[in-house]
């Protein structure tokens, strides 16, 4: 279950993995912000393909593009709806019967959004793939995030799989007492309501016990906290952070000047 525990971090030995989580975050945020500011989709597509050297360095070239298949369904709807019903339509591209038409503006708009989604997806995903949540939280805490918030973030990631498995246990238990979980949608919804009670009560009970465990570890001690995970912000991090910001600005400006 280690994969589920840490959502989707993939451990690899690469320069990109070793970068400070904040550096990678800055890179992702730069790319995502850019995707909204660039003049047209051509620039976004270039930005999209610019992930390749990073992903290759991180040895995750194939994984980074994997979630794109989920985008496919969104694209179908996006193109379907926008090319027919875009509000600022002017130019007819293809005239269809019954007064329907495919509009050029709508089509371009859909292309625009799709290119943006592609950029957001790959840069966001590369960040998630290469950054250990523990490192990210440790670094954020070091930069002033409250201690308790750091705990909340990291535990949430860890406890989601716990709640899932707890739900499964309850479902099995109810099923063995004759609960029907198959059939029509309404039947299924009905079947799942009795799960909520035990699941909710169980979670509250667990929360109380966990709170006691936290107390036993001096969680509320009033002193400067230290950290076990060592995350360094090196010269390379400085260089990459600075150049991502500067290059983003240049690229954004160039897209509007050309």
């Amino acid at each position: 279950m280690p994969e589920a525990v840490l959502i989707s971090y993939v451990k690899k030995k690469s320069f990109f993995h070793k970068l400070n989580p904040l550096t990678k975050l800055v890179l992702a945020v730069c790319a995502i912000t850019l995707s909204f500011l660039l003049k047209n989709f051509m620039y976004n597509l270039i930005l999209f393909f610019f992930i390749i050297p990073f992903a290759y360095e991180a040895k995750l070239l194939r994984q980074v593009f994997k979630p794109l298949r989920y985008l496919f369904i969104i694209f179908v709807f996006l193109f379907g709806i926008q090319s027919f019903f875009y509000p600022f339509r002017e130019t007819v591209l293809v005239q269809l019967p019954f007064g329907f038409a495919i509009w050029l503006e709508g089509l371009l708009y859909a292309v625009d959004i799709s290119a943006r989604l592609l950029v957001i997806m790959v840069y966001g995903y590369l960040f998630v793939l290469t950054t250990h949540p523990g490192d990210l939280v440790s670094e954020l805490k070091e930069r002033g995030m409250p201690h308790w918030l750091g705990y909340v973030l990291i535990t949430t990631l860890q406890l989601i799989p716990r709640v899932t498995s707890q739900t499964e246990v309850i479902i099995e238990a109810q099923r063995s007492r004759g609960l029907e979980t198959q059939g029509s949608v309404i039947k299924r919804l009905k079947a799942y309501t009795p799960l909520l009670g035990p699941l909710f009560m169980g979670s509250v009970q667990n929360a109380v016990e966990r709170a006691m465990a936290l107390e036993a570890r001096a969680f509320r001690a009033e002193c400067d906290k230290t950290r076990y995970r060592d995350v360094k912000f090196t010269k390379q991090d400085k260089l990459i952070t600075a150049s991502s910001i500067i290059l983003s600005i240049i690229y954004g400006v160039v897209s509007w000047l050309l």
Binding site: G134, Y151, I154, T155, E209, R210, M212, A213, R217, F219
Partner: peptide, 9 residues
Amino acid sequence: DTQLTGAGT
């Protein structure tokens, strides 16, 4: 299970 704080990965 519940006395592990979940603070550590």
